[in-house]
Design a protein around this nucleic acid. Structure first.
Length: 473
RNA sequence: GGCGCCGUAGCCAAGUGGUAAGGCAGAGGUCUGCAAAACCUCUAUUCGUCGGUUCGAUUCCGACCGGCGCCUCCA
């Protein structure tokens, strides 16, 4: 079994073969830190987290680069509106982004190059394109990429099969370009750029990088430094980036290096709300901090997103999130039960057999273009059959627990342990002891009263053959 | 107008040219003092509609209806 991934470049499922295994260079388009990222943005980052984790699970040595776009039109506009310098405005959003990633258990990239700190690499790339004759200075002083000089332009987005809508809108800089489709590599600095500190000197004029340029320059810079290559194994992002962002990245990068920019392009679908794309523009968004403030377990978000394939739009709702929360709880209960089911395995090896089947199904599902919904189905089959085996007296939970834990290195959907104050835990134990005493004396009214008392404090109890268990809900 | 995606039970959602995974919710049962948890049973003869190809289609083709996305900042 080998991993196959859907490559946007070919619109096909392809066996995954990195340039120099076991190394895999992975570049994922990160957030634009002009504001808080919403969970639609995080759906993409979580899909990339799944990809990253599964590559590592499969034995690859992943070098993961995620950029932070801290200078672009929106960032400048927002900084100017707030009367702040660029870095002053973006700093809290950068911090919030990392906090949100931690909350959602997103594995850290190895490097987070920032656009404002990568200007020299961008200037070098623009110069290289000017030298190669595929870029030119427009009448407005900006530098543009000449699409006519790059014949394969449009391959990723199948632009060759499209018609550009004529007369829909006329870009303000259109008069400065040779061809309306040409895009800016370097934008001449205007007074607002200067005011917020978004302007740098370059041989071809003082200005700032175009959005597409940032990703090309940062990714090539990073993989050049780490691996001395000019081709990424995987480049991933949201579907909305296919055109023009990724198309333009390919043009710039390949025109400069003469090498394929990325071998595999992966794109995650949108998160929707009531049938419409979640977007800042529509105001129908929810941030990770909103969920955290509602005490939503990040595991529920992870499970919810894992239960829909990454190339399929997912409609978000509180009901769906709550349903995932129930699933997470069930997984946690099962793992606790496995831990309690110690001792040597029963002779028929039921749990071991279930664990083996699960691991095989789990891999097969994820090998098939990261089919996490199927992996989740395998997981719940393990829970169901495992519970049945335990009910029937199977012991030796360690095998199944190990299999579960290995899978969790990829999905990571077990409940977040709740921190409980020692004093509170002591009080709960005391109450439970009192209840057990009442139960022993057949005083069930008192026992039920104590249970209600605990419930009011958020403590749920469960009587088991080995005593009374409790948990926070 | 161009390009593309989707339409599967109450909700969410996999999937296959050979007769529908999984999760949540619901009903009944076992267990329990009662619960909880867990397990058992039940819950789509059917996969938007209409045609076509086929021995056979939810799965392939066509048309239509409905929803969405990109073509402009966008995860």
């Amino acid at each position: 079994m080998t991993l196959a991934l859907h490559n946007t470049l070919t619109r096909r499922l392809e066996p995954f073969q990195p340039l120099a295994p076991p190394r895999v260079t992975l570049y994922t388009c990160g957030p634009t830190v002009w504001n808080y990222a919403h969970i639609g943005n995080f759906r993409t980052f979580l899909f990339e987290d799944l990809l990253r984790r599964y590559l590592e699970f499969s034995g690859y040595d992943v070098f993961h680069i995620m950029n932070l776009t801290d200078v672009d039109d929106r960032t400048i506009k927002a900084a100017a509106a707030a009367g702040k310098r660029l870095e002053e405005h973006t700093a809290p959003f950068v911090e919030a982004f990392f906090a949100d990633c931690d909350y959602l258990r997103i594995r850290k990239a190895h490097v987070y190059p920032r656009a404002t700190q990568s200007v020299p690499a961008m200037v070098r790339l623009v110069q290289r394109l000017l030298d190669a004759g595929v870029a030119y200075r427009g009448e407005d002083g900006s530098v543009y990429f000449a699409i006519a000089k790059f014949p394969s332009y449009g391959r990723l987005s199948q632009l060759d099969r499209r018609e550009i809508k004529i007369g829909a809108r006329v870009a303000s800089d259109e008069y400065a370009k040779d061809d309306p489709r040409d895009f800016a590599l370097w934008k001449r600095a205007d007074p607002i750029d200067e005011r917020v500190g978004a302007a740098w000197d370059a041989p071809f004029g003082r200005g700032r990088p175009g959005w597409h340029l940032e990703c090309s320059a940062m990714s090539l810079d990073q993989i050049g430094k780490c691996c001395r290559v000019e081709t990424l194994d995987i480049h991933a992002g949201g579907v909305d980036l296919i055109f023009p962002h990724h198309e333009d990245e390919i043009a710039q990068s390949e025109a400069a290096t003469g090498q394929p920019f990325a071998r595999y392009w992966l794109h995650g679908e949108f998160l929707k709300v009531g049938g419409t794309k979640m977007s800042k523009r529509f105001g129908n968004f929810l941030t990770a901090r909103d969920l955290r403030e509602q005490s939503v377990d990040a595991a529920a978000v992870r499970l919810l997103f894992s239960q829909t394939h990454y190339r399929r739009a997912l409609d978000f709702s509180d009901e769906a999130l709550a349903a995932a929360g129930q699933g997470v709880k069930r997984l946690g209960e099962f793992r606790d039960r496995l831990v309690r089911a110690g001792g040597p395995a029963t002779p028929d090896g039921r749990l071991a057999a279930l664990a083996a089947r699960f691991e095989s199904d789990f891999r097969a599902a994820l090998d098939d273009d990261l089919n996490a919904p199927r992996a989740c189905a395998a997981l719940f089959e393990l829970v169901h059959d495992g519970n049945g085996a335990l009910d029937a007296g199977a012991a030796g939970g360690a095998v199944a627990r190990d299999a579960l834990d290995r899978a969790m290195a990829v999905l990571d959907v077990l409940p977040t342990p709740r921190a409980v104050e020692p004093g509170f835990a002591g009080w709960v134990d005391e109450r439970i002891a009192a209840r057990d005493k009442a139960r022993g004396a057949k005083d069930f009214r008192e026992a039920d009263r104590i249970r209600a008392e605990l419930k009011a404090k958020g403590v749920e109890i469960e009587d088991t053959p080995s005593g009374t268990k409790w948990r926070m809900v």
